[in-house]
């Protein structure tokens, strides 16, 4: 076991654990979108889980830091909050806010972070960015809503984990990056085994199951804990 000090509180955690996981396990919330418990090599892409660690000048993403004995960490400094708020604001500027009509309403990770950071869901200094995206490849039973997607990549990760090969993946690049199924004439080439893990794990309601009335709202199907994390065991 390793002990470290987070926000003046001593916590204990398993050796080899990431700092982010250690904090979450001990009830210290740090905003995060792209991190999953047990993910090897966390992508570190959402840039929300910043913390300040004694001995480092700059805030670091806690998902990429392994805990060390005696580490002294602060999760709520001004510097950390500034970066978190900017990152959140940037994500929000590409996220079509329509909570009332969104199946993720009240379970959405973005709502949770907004509340935590005391940051409204309305943009103030930035203008909303319209992403000009055509959904190129339709999926027979999954619906992808790019204007909601925050590109956390959890869906790609769980799909690969379950099926060995991802049946959906990141496509294109930069600002145009999307999650894509590949198919022709609406028929996906890759055979999906309809496990819906991708829709269950999506933190913002950007992947939905369509057609079947029983499964149209994946938020009913998955079992979620209060942190909005999928409890369905990964293989």
């Amino acid at each position: 076991m390793v002990t470290l000090i987070v926000d003046n509180k001593e916590i204990e955690t398993q050796e080899g654990s990431t700092l982010l996981q250690a904090c979450l396990d001990n009830g210290i919330y740090i905003p995060n979108l792209c991190y999953l418990n047990g993910i090897e090599d966390p992508p570190g892409s959402c840039r929300l889980c910043f913390v300040e660690i004694e001995g480092y000048d700059q805030p670091r993403t806690s998902c990429r830091v392994k805990v060390q004995q005696g580490m002294v960490v602060r999760t709520n400094t001004e510097h950390v909050r500034r970066l978190q708020k900017t990152a959140f604001e940037l994500l929000l500027s590409t996220h079509h806010v329509e909570c009332r009509n969104c199946p993720a309403n009240k379970k959405c990770e973005l709502q949770r972070i907004a509340k935590f950071l005391h940051f409204g869901l309305k943009l103030k200094r930035l203008e909303p960015l319209e992403r000009d995206i055509e959904v190129e490849h339709e999926h027979p039973f999954l619906e992808y809503i790019p204007t909601r997607c925050v590109l956390c990549g959890k869906c790609v990760f769980v799909c690969r984990k379950r099926n060995g090969q991802p049946m959906l993946s990141f496509a294109k690049r930069g600002f145009d990056t999307v999650i894509s199924f590949f198919g022709e004439n609406d028929k996906p080439v890759d055979v999906c085994n309809e496990c819906y893990a991708c829709a269950e794990i999506c933190p913002v309601g950007a992947l939905l199951v369509k057609d079947s009335p029983n499964t149209s709202n994946p938020w009913k199907r998955g079992s979620f804990n209060d942190k909005g994390k999928c409890q369905t065991p990964l293989k």
Binding site: C46, K172, F175
Partner: peptide, 18 residues
């Protein structure tokens, strides 16, 4: 840089666009 951003992280993907 905005065209060449890989799109992985929030700051570069969306920030450079702003």
């Amino acid at each position: 840089t905005q065209h060449e951003s890989c799109g992985k992280c929030t700051f570069c993907r969306i920030g450079t666009k702003h």
